[in-house]
Amino acid sequence: MSELSAAALSYLIAFADDEHMIGARHTSWIGMGPFLEEDLAFCSIAQDELGHAIALYELVVDSFGSSSELVTPIDHFALLRPAADYRSCSLAEAACDDWQDALVRHWLYDRAEELRWAALADSSNPALAAIALRSEREEVFHRAHAESFMSRIASSGNASSIALITDSIQRLLPLGDGLWDPPDAEADAIAEGFVTESSASMASKWKQDIAQDIQKWNLPVGLEIQIYLNEAAPSASSFGDRLQRSEGFDQFLTSLQAVISLDPEAEW
């Protein structure tokens, strides 16, 4: 159990909330994939993302415990905060009710995760560094999964299928900016070695990775997307993304709380 700085806590909560929301959103696809093998794969990915959220929330809750003697069960922290206290980004919160959106979001998000875990692999917090190394080993498979689907659909020659994923990219890529909205006091977290790279720096690398993928797959994205990807810095619209909840979040959170809120004191 170790007490973390406010900057470190803020950084952890943002990442944990992202992992929680992406895992929860992926969960809604169980049994609804395009074929059975894909159901099995996507279900594994959802479990991994939830596992990452648990590991990060544990660090947060342990820190609360050491400072205030208040033992907060992880599930209370993960599920029972008011909507305004979550720090997840819009891309993680998005519903993605169509499979093409779920796939494109999975690719965009997991491309970012590679950079985010790398920035924690040498963290001054050894427990976090260990989580980062373990998580990145899992993420290799997630990226291979996303890459496999995106490249195969892109190479299908099937114009309507390519149009579906291209349209998803056009809509979801701008939301990806919110991934790089820096958590409160990120500079302090960097200064104490908790994280080794800034969100702005990662945003730039992420855009390059995404641009290279799109080029490799020869996907016909619009000019505005190409211009966006060529801009090194996150656009101004990303700032504050983590402070505001996206449309439909309240309803989603209510649904996540449907059982635990029946009796929050009970063990489920």
């Binding site: 969960t27 992880i74 489920w268």
Partner: peptide
């Protein structure tokens, strides 16, 4: 999706898987 805990959600996902 409404499982009253993250580990429970993982367990039920694994079971359905």
């Amino acid at each position: 999706p409404k499982a009253p805990g993250l580990r429970l959600k993982q367990i039920f996902l694994a079971k359905t898987q």
